[in-house]
Design a binder for these strands. Structure first.
Lengths: 211, 211
DNA sequence: TAATATGGTCACCATTTGGTGACTTTCCCA
DNA sequence: TGGGAAAGTCACCAAATGGTGACCATATTA
């Protein structure tokens, strides 16, 4: 396979594409998905909107391309799944949930994408869901289902609640005041309390398999 | 204070106002808050959009009026707070969370408002948050804080997670597939599992105060 | 019953937004 | 070096959307 060195035209084109994709990210982070209009994207990119149609076919395809470049599971899956799990995944579960809680708090982009996914039907967003379910299913079937046996569904339900809680808590801090049940979710102390509770709940769930 | 019987004109006006408010609800339920445009609201109400400006001052005020008529805490607060709580609110907590889980599942309108609140800054939505926090605070301070003592914050954090989880799970069933951690949240069986887990987690949390 | 006030309609305008044809500029290559 | 291909710009159009003045119809009232 020969590697043709790109001409300056091709370089320019790729550069423009990247500018447009970057503009999408910037707008998403700052104003949310509803502000992703052709004119605005082009303006932020400093290019003519015609290029969006030329290079991507339209706004929708640009957004799909943008989303497909994002992989928000790299912070969780793969290398972070340890080989030797002796505790039925207890510590791993805690790490996973904590990582989600922390990562989403820091990544406004991820927050906006999750909100987007709650608001709009879109194949590329759907795919994100599917991927996450698939990754989750591997962990569940290989590690926790065997450990919990008859209670496998209980553990699944607990994780569904905790992960959902992590999502919602991070979504709500941005818009509403950051107070939830009297805890300030923008303060370290408040977030530490949540994390403590997450670990506590997971420990309690694992406790039932040690009767 | 004399009660003037309303003239037929006044009746007509009130009727039109109600039609407009009803149109808001209908659109919100079916298409979400982003579809709440002047033209569409007027069309659904079967009236001229000019009336929105005449009677409410504009779309924003119409929406605020709409939201202020809604009280989504009537299904929880007040009459449902029992007088004689012997268990530190354990059963009451379970009822509360279950009621939320169930109510939100059935009320698409409530779902859309919660999603709206995550998406847009708006005083009337903010007020909803404040009200909920206030109601919650009463319960927390009078019932659970005393019961949990030093662990009061842990209980608060647990409830924050559970309630958030309930919110998110009900939001996600609508848009993404309804599968979460392998559980189908549109099926009775899946929802029963979640409810079981909610109760389990609350029981486990109360268990720490009985060492 | 005639004047007035008000609910309600319609036509119209300005702005925003998505989308495209025609043009210019620049690079590549025969 | 000249012609073609492709990057990039600009002007323009159409539809959607927010907003308003002028008008009509009818109930109330002097």
């Amino acid at each position: 396979m020969e590697q043709k060195s790109p001409s300056s035209k091709e370089q320019s084109k790729e550069k423009s594409k990247k500018k447009l994709l970057a503009a999408v990210g910037k707008i998403l982070k700052t104003k949310g998905f509803s502000a992703l209009k052709v004119n605005d994207i082009a303006a932020v990119a400093g290019l003519d909107k015609k290029l969006i149609y030329k290079y991507f076919g339209g706004t929708d395809q640009l957004l799909d391309t943008y989303l497909s470049t994002k992989d928000f599971w790299s912070n969780v899956k793969g290398d972070r799944i340890p080989k030797d799990i002796k505790d039925g995944g207890q510590e791993f579960s805690k790490e996973l949930v904590s990582a989600q809680f922390d990562y989403m708090f820091r990544s406004k982009e991820y927050q906006k994408i999750i909100l987007w996914r709650l608001s709009e039907q879109r194949k590329s967003l759907q795919r994100l869901t599917t991927t996450q379910e698939e990754v989750g299913e591997v962990i569940l079937q290989h590690i926790t289902d065997p450990h919990f046996g008859d209670n496998a569904d209980l553990y699944r339900a607990v994780m569904a609640i905790l992960v959902s809680g992590v999502y919602y808590l991070n979504l709500t801090t941005d818009v509403n005041g950051s107070i939830f049940c009297g805890l300030d979710l923008n303060e370290k102390s408040g977030r530490a309390k949540i994390e403590e509770a997450l670990h506590f709940l997971i420990d309690q769930t694992y406790a039932i398999s040690k009767d």
